[in-house]
Design a binder for these strands. Sequence first.
DNA 1: ATGGTGCATTAACCTATGTTAGTGCAGATT
DNA 2: AATCTGCACTAACATAGGTTAATGCACCAT
Lengths: 246, 246
Amino acid sequence: MTSTLYPLSHRFLLGRARHRLDDEDQRTIEEMITDVERFTSAHSVLERGDVVSRSTLLIEGFIARVIKQDGRRHILALHVPGDFVDLHAFALKRLDHSIVSIGPVLVGYTPHTKLEEILETRPRLARMLWFSTLLDAAMHREWILKLEHLSADGRLAHLIAEIWQRLDFVGMADPSGFSFPLTQQELADSCGTTAIHMNRVVRKLRESGIADISRGRVTIMDTDALIELGGFDPAYLYGKGDLMLD
Amino acid sequence: MTSTLYPLSHRFLLGRARHRLDDEDQRTIEEMITDVERFTSAHSVLERGDVVSRSTLLIEGFIARVIKQDGRRHILALHVPGDFVDLHAFALKRLDHSIVSIGPVLVGYTPHTKLEEILETRPRLARMLWFSTLLDAAMHREWILKLEHLSADGRLAHLIAEIWQRLDFVGMADPSGFSFPLTQQELADSCGTTAIHMNRVVRKLRESGIADISRGRVTIMDTDALIELGGFDPAYLYGKGDLMLD
DNA sequence: ATGGTGCATTAACCTATGTTAGTGCAGATT
DNA sequence: AATCTGCACTAACATAGGTTAATGCACCAT
């Protein structure tokens, strides 16, 4: 089984690990995932309030962190392959939001007992796991900034730019764009606006020749303009150039 | 020196530790802070981009995480006594935002070498530190939700309710409200609006008999209405009733 | 006393966005 | 073929909140 799972943990390394790892660390990571599972689109992988004893690594597809409130759905964060979607639940135990698949997904599970073992015996790996959740927090902060700062078109531009960059980290972006199954409603839920207004914004992006979002795909037409509109500066993603250990 | 600093680390326990600790853990925490420093109001304790080798615990006063963008200031998060304001920099190293005092503050410092020691030898404490940063992330998420969901008056109500609750965790709230030195401009920077609109909102809160914010103090007049307006549910703060270890 | 400075406050006007109420179209189901 | 369903799209109108421009008021320094 390990041999099948190797590429998955390798992807975790790509997306979230900015450290160099020794062979033993590498092996530990490879053996972290004990089980995988497939879900169809719009499946609630985990519900708010669930008490969990394992953490979930997204291997294929997209997953959203969702909260429903007053009949409205809010997407707090989006995840790309290689992300742990609920690593924070290892220390918090109870989930404060739901985890929902967007499009079909493949996930892997790591029992918390394994994580505890890592925490007790492999401080370097522990720090890497910690780092992964800190990256989530940094993305949250960036999103707070954008929500306070930008109107809907800028938010959408930022969202696209960020996902593009994050997919690129895991080798899943191509120069012209990326596959992205979110509906306009879900984009609206992500940007804190309505589907109707999101439709205006999507059209505006398209008509201004910046990007086209349709049929489950984002096509970037003018990268510079996209980055400008979204005020996107990837520094907060602490990418390859910014190792914080080593 | 330890005897003077004891209450400080004790406050950290109050605000952020939801675990029970053994004597040795307790002692380690007490000795974590090696140095303290006082700053006047509006002092930039740390600048965005700084590479840090120690982490900062807020002991007295308020501190904001700030980003300046396009001539505008954004407050990403607020901290109350007992909070580490840059514990995330232990793993991220480079700060993605500035740390600014709001009113006079007293801070304590913990060298990263001490944190590394804890990570290597005291997994339980390591987990507690991790938990503390996860709490920040949970607060970020809640704020994202409120930014996407509420208009300015609801955001302000939520902000007040949250700070009141967090101050209560460290024994610094009183039943009628709390001391709070933010100007309307800073409240606006926190809520993602303008000072002018914040003024309308503050007045509305006052006139509707919910809360009064003036002369560096928040007075809560109608707790239920405040909680209702801000949609405040303290569950995401993982308070005393919600231990996730033990 | 006088003027400066920071903060709170108000007014008038404009734009982004929400709300309500629809239309149209493609793929799936029967 | 007919219908259903989900999604994209549009229009008309209402409102929250941004922008610009001032005023007032306390505290501080000279």
